[in-house]
């Protein structure tokens, strides 16, 4: 009984003590933000102003040119872009990619709606273990990674073609991820798709009805490679492939004719897709892109 009374008093005392102490606690929330939240900051210079005026304010596009390991493959050796290349690269991107879409659609809405919201610029290419190199990558319609920019020179046409081909390729993925390409595209030459596309030369890929060897990678890549080729390399280059195929008088004549037909059909599907899905005149877009590239 005595013990019980002692235990009871002890428990009551403990409760009173804990109530008092909890009442007196004033939990203060941290006044400082989590370090680095909202991204890194640095004193802005004229290059940051250029990006802000030409991409961020009008299109809500971020152009990330300072190194951030979390934006790239962390298992690969990559290096940051040379600052001297940032404005020349982005200037060509705007002229060859954004401006023609705006001119053909007559407004800024299309690019604002579908453009990826982030460009990440990297100086070197990404070297794959199979001997190929990666020049660009699109992720979920939100981000475009541009690689190998330290070699960029807008006066060197092959480099402009290579980079803008990559951008149109990646943007093509965003378009078909929003509105799927027609089913008919899938049935043109399904036998030609392979994971080891890099073992095939561009010439041999042409003979199978693909604009490039990379188009043999998947149906989606075939679709966007054909878009990119038509827009960037241009109609003349596309027609030259078909003319070569049609002039084949060897044993492979039948296969070449079929390949030429497939390429023509792919172009027709793309023209129709741009019109029906987005109301864009693909031929006018192509002419405008070519006009810009030829006058850079």
């Amino acid at each position: 009984m005595k013990l019980h009374r002692f235990g009871g008093n002890f428990l009551i005392g403990l409760l009173v003590l804990s109530t008092c102490s909890s009442c007196s606690k004033k939990e203060e929330l941290p006044q400082k933000n989590i370090l680095g939240i909202g991204g890194d900051t640095w004193p802005k210079d004229s290059m940051d102003d250029y990006i802000s005026q030409n991409f961020t304010i009008p299109y809500n596009i971020q152009v990330k040119y300072k190194w951030d390991p979390y934006e790239v493959s962390f298992t690969k050796t990559l290096i940051p872009v040379d600052e001297k290349k940032v404005i020349p690269v982005m200037d060509v991107v705007k002229k060859v990619w954004i401006d023609p879409y705006e001119k053909v659609t007559g407004n800024t809405g299309f690019i604002k709606k579908f453009a990826p919201k982030q460009f990440v610029l990297v100086g070197s290419a990404e070297y794959n273990t199979d001997g190929t190199i990666k020049l660009g990558q699109a992720e979920g319609g939100r981000k475009i990674l541009l690689l190998k920019l330290n070699d960029f020179d807008k006066k060197k046409r092959p480099e402009v073609i290579e980079m803008m081909h990559t951008i149109q390729h990646e943007f093509g993925h965003i378009l078909h991820q929003n509105i799927l390409y027609p089913e008919a595209f899938k049935s043109l030459n399904p036998e030609g798709y392979t994971g080891t596309w890099y073992n095939v030369s561009n010439e041999d890929a042409n003979k199978q009805g693909f604009v490039t060897n990379y188009a043999k990678s998947t149906i989606q890549d075939d679709f966007v490679e054909t878009i990119a080729y038509l827009l960037i390399e241009g109609q003349d280059a596309f027609d030259a492939i078909i003319t070569d195929l049609e002039s084949d008088i060897t044993d492979t004549k039948l296969a070449s004719m079929k390949a030429a037909g497939n390429l023509r059909q792919k172009q027709a599907i793309i023209i129709s897709y741009y019109k029906s899905a987005y109301g864009i005149d693909f031929n006018a877009l192509q002419a405008e892109v070519q006009n810009v590239i030829n006058n850079l």
Binding site: K66, W67, T77, P80, E83
Partner: peptide, 29 residues
Amino acid sequence: TGSYRLKATQLPSLYFDSYSYLHLLADPD
């Protein structure tokens, strides 16, 4: 001339975050 920044990663880190001579030895090309 390039840029650098200090970053709170697993350990405080020094990033040389735009291309400079330091990157020549890391260039995969």
